[in-house]
Amino acid sequence: MDFLRPTTWADALAAKAERPEATPIQGGTDVMVEINLDKGRPAALLDLNPVAELRDWSSEDGWLRIGAGVSYTRLIDELGDRLPGLAQASRTVGSPQIRNRGTVAGNLGAASPAGDSHPPLLASDALVEAESVRGSRLIPIGEFYLGVKRNALEPDELIRAVRVPYADGPQYFSKIGTRNAMVIAVCSFAVALHPSRRGVGTGIGSAAPTPRRAPEAEEFLAGELDWDGRTAVPDETARRFGELVARAASPIDDVRGTRDYRVHALAVMARRTLGWAWTEYRGI
């Protein structure tokens, strides 16, 4: 096995172009588990820790550009006020030690359907900034997940940053697991209200081969909410929203939960997160 240690972003891209089979390693919280448990030995590890450019975040025109090396802990501490949905999801990842090392970029690289950052990224229309020696491109988050643990990166590409718009309304995340810490989601759900364009964003985790949105549920709810009067959401509307969210999923039975449980839980989480979000929007 080779260990590649580029110290600049340009060198990292050159290394990946030369050795497309090399496995990038950031926090290592997915990569090292695989190696320790001998689930596969990469031909080479491409360590991104020394690349200083990746450790920064910046903001421009209402968007945050979060470098691939920013840990969950820093995201929560430094950006939690502007990205409440992503911060809530980040708080549920693993344990403090895992959050000190793990990154959203690593979550995207792994592209597990259960990854916790995916639902809030979907709900807020994030963009993945991918780059190679050939150039840079922005991949809309909805086009990033291709299958179980498969994403839209080309073999010579690396994730430079994740771009997320500032929250323009309430955002909530909910996750089901057996305890508070250290759980892979049985299923999860994120909602974001976008009052400026009277829109609703959603993200479903761990209930389909990839994380996905619930477009019908979004459209239905956006049309029903009393954006100006801010009156309470009728029970029937919340129930229907939950139903449409559950219908967008295609879960399976596995060791963590059954298909039926996931469908039921998604509808409950959709209703609850909507309740929290609307309460916040009404300012009560």
Binding site: F3, V33, Q97
Partner: peptide, 28 residues
């Protein structure tokens, strides 16, 4: 060796991490 138990916790540049999940080359 999979980050679940914390018994390998050490400080890396002042931040507590699971030493089992840091590739040794990353500690250079």
């Amino acid at each position: 060796e999979q980050g679940e138990c914390g018994s390998c916790t050490v400080y890396l540049d002042g931040i507590p991490v699971c030493a089992c999940l840091v590739a040794i080359g990353q500690a250079e």
